[in-house]
């Protein structure tokens, strides 16, 4: 059996471990909420993580479609980008998948005839890392842009230019 197929067969286990690892980057109280708290609308963070990690897993074994993959990565990274994580922490779900696969199918992976497939899988994950960083940077840049614009709102600037503002205490 080839490695991809093997990993796919163990999807349920791998996914469970993957989500566990990823949500463990939060305090225990909220980790459980993100893992189990139901509701697409009552628990958007948990729901996004669970459903998109699932889809990313499937997508890894399909014809590479960078746009589609970006669309799946985006919601996760977008959340992580505002939660005060370091960049590497924000996208740590990628290496965590590798770890999860390793822990579930480690023995199989080390089999001589699977090495080339394993390397191939790792390569796909690397691509996923790059995609995640791209998204992460875009998110952060957008936040900074908003910050810059915040102080420069159209009319406020106009007022200032015309020296029409008088702040109390000045």
């Amino acid at each position: 059996m080839n490695l991809d197929k093997l990993i796919k067969e163990k999807k349920t286990q791998i996914l469970k471990l993957w989500i566990l690892k990823f949500t463990n980057t939060y305090p225990e109280e909220s980790a459980q909420f993100f893992r189990g708290g139901p509701g697409q609308f009552a628990n958007p963070v948990g729901h996004t993580f669970r459903s998109n990690l699932d889809k990313i897993f499937d997508e890894l074994f399909m014809e590479y479609d960078s746009k589609k993959m970006q669309g799946l990565v985006d919601p996760i990274v977008r959340i992580r980008a505002v939660q005060g994580f370091d960049p590497s922490e924000a996208v740590c779900f990628v290496p965590m998948l590798k770890q999860s696969v390793w822990e579930i199918c480690g023995k199989e992976v080390t089999r001589q005839d699977h090495i080339s497939e394993w390397l191939d899988f790792i390569e796909r994950l690397e691509l996923l890392t790059y995609t995640s960083f791209d998204v992460y940077m875009r998110c952060r840049e957008q936040l900074w842009k908003q910050k810059a614009e915040f102080t420069n709102s159209r009319t406020h600037k106009l007022l200032e230019k015309a020296n029409l503002l008088k702040k109390a205490g000045e």
Binding site: K21, T25, S88, C92, P95, K98, Q99, W102
Partner: peptide, 19 residues
């Protein structure tokens, strides 16, 4: 390296003693 899982993100994965 891959045989040593969970080392990279120890700083966030590591749980301090419950307080």
């Amino acid at each position: 390296a891959i045989q040593k899982p969970d080392t990279m993100f120890k700083n966030i994965d590591h749980k301090p003693p419950r307080k």
